[in-house]
């Protein structure tokens, strides 16, 4: 008879909260308090603000233009997503024309801390690949109190061929620094989520910047060939590279 495998052995294979043990049917005290601490940190992350100057420095020499949605503050952003999808009138007039371009909108979304760190890393990996593929990159846009669909209005106003919105994902307990990317071909107001492709969980420990950049390049090429993003565009990028140990 072989030696039984310890429950705690499972921890080697995942960052999820496995093998926490049992106190009766409940969580042991240490695991319970670990959870409470993680929740407290995530609550604080929701209210973190983007440091625009630091981000501008991090993406230099790429030009970065700041805009804002119609949501005036965090509370308004949380309770009125419609305002987070609309651009301030004054900002709309300031957008440069960039017809046929690949547009990147960096948005704070639900957690600024992830955007601050992951967006510059992703762009450093992705922009050279996109340029090599012959795409013209529009000036970068930094949008505050922004929802994903704000990229549609910005892209339409600039005449972009395709928009990638890099946005802070809602913080979880294990990750408060996660970036999401939403790709939309021919952006214009009224696009639905079924017309976008998403790359989620971009962060160290999730999908790293280099792999996310490769996937963005693949999706962009496929979107241009197909003439669509969204459910019609199946992500059939060979996945083996992503799952190497």
């Amino acid at each position: 008879m072989t030696e039984p495998v310890a429950w705690t052995d499972l921890r080697r294979f995942t960052g999820a909260r496995v093998a926490l043990g049992r106190a009766g049917h409940g969580l042991p005290t240490a695991a319970h308090l670990d959870f409470q601490e993680a929740h407290a940190r995530a609550r604080d992350a929701v209210h973190s603000a983007l440091d625009a100057e630091a981000l501008e420095a991090a993406v230099a020499p790429e030009p970065l233009l700041r805009v804002a949605s119609q949501a005036e503050d965090r509370r308004s952003y949380l309770l009125r997503p419609d305002l987070g999808r609309r651009l301030r009138e004054a900002d709309r007039a300031r957008l440069p024309a960039a017809p046929g371009s690949f547009l990147v909108v960096i948005a704070d979304g639900l957690c600024a801390t992830g955007v601050q760190v992951q967006a510059p890393r992703l762009l450093a990996a992705a922009l050279p690949l996109l340029r090599r593929a012959g795409l013209g990159i529009a000036p970068l846009i930094l949008a505050s109190q922004a929802r994903v669909a704000l990229g549609d209005e910005i892209g339409e106003a600039m005449g972009a061929a395709i928009v990638a919105v890099l946005i802070g994902e809602r913080p979880g307990l294990s990750a408060t620094d996660s970036l999401g990317l939403y790709l939309t071909l021919a952006p214009r107001r009224g696009r639905t989520d079924a017309e976008r492709n998403c790359i989620s969980n971009i962060r160290p420990g999730g999908l790293d910047a280099a792999a996310a950049a490769e996937k963005l390049l693949w999706l962009t090429g496929a979107a241009r060939r197909l003439g669509a993003t969204g459910v019609e565009l199946k992500d059939e990028q060979p996945a083996t590279a992503l799952l190497a140990p």
Binding site: A16, R17, V18, L20, F35, E169, R170, G172, S174, N201
Partner: peptide
């Protein structure tokens, strides 16, 4: 696991 979905962040 532990009420914490490490993919969906909820």
């Amino acid at each position: 696991p532990g009420a914490d979905d490490v993919m969906l962040a909820y």
